[in-house]
Design a protein around this nucleic acid. Structure first.
Lengths: 107, 107
DNA sequence: CATTTGCGTAAGCCATGACTTACCGTAAGT
DNA sequence: ACTTACGGTAAGTCATGGCTTACGCAAATG
């Protein structure tokens, strides 16, 4: 059920920007906030959500906290998506075939 | 940018249930609604969002519309996630290593 | 120790969006 | 043609959640 938290976490545009910043390397909260159109507390709140979803982790470094992407949540998301992948491809193929038959019929 | 729509679409719990029902095979709107705790119009609205996100497609069959999962949106999501996967694993490994050093220091 | 720097949390405001009922269109059955 | 079955759309209500400002706390710095 953890993939659910990851999905809701990544659904928000601002939160996705935070996550993508971390995709280029670990960063402290302040530096993330500088490049974003929202306040630093807002970034803190987003990081909290991302952390609870297992998408990021953090370490203390002096008075600042360095955040970085945690593969855990990412992996659960991938696993969940993959449960649909194969069957989706097969079903879609069947639909395309059905569609081709219809076109033929109309000739 | 299409993965954004897919993420927001799958963020809603009810909409995720709709999507997961379709994961077991194509279904008309009414049958989906029967198994869910919301009204049929609600399901229609959810299907519209899923369709705009490229996550489902539909065909007409008499007076009903059969919906099924479309690999398109699913694929874009997977592609986006994979952009983070490798670097996330590497970064996380580095953090773990750093952590081990700290423990050693404290001995 | 006093100050500064960097973050997290609390409280409150406001927009987004998920749901309902009511209605309309279209395709099949009689 | 009338009726029934099935879905999409409109309008309106209400809760969720993202943002801001204000505040508190801990670690470094002098």
């Amino acid at each position: 059920m953890a993939y659910a938290n990851a999905l809701t976490a990544l659904a928000d545009p601002t939160r996705r920007m935070v996550f993508e910043r971390l995709g280029k390397g670990p960063l402290p909260v302040g530096e993330i906030a500088e490049t974003l159109p929202v306040s630093r507390p807002a970034v803190s709140q987003h990081l909290k959500v991302l952390k609870e979803a297992g998408l990021v982790s953090d370490r203390a470094e002096g008075t600042r906290r360095i955040y970085y992407i945690d593969p855990e949540g990412l992996g659960q998301l991938r696993a969940w998506l993959d449960r649909f992948w194969d069957t989706a491809l097969a079903e879609f193929g069947a639909e395309v075939a059905r569609d081709n038959l219809k076109r033929k019929d109309r000739k």
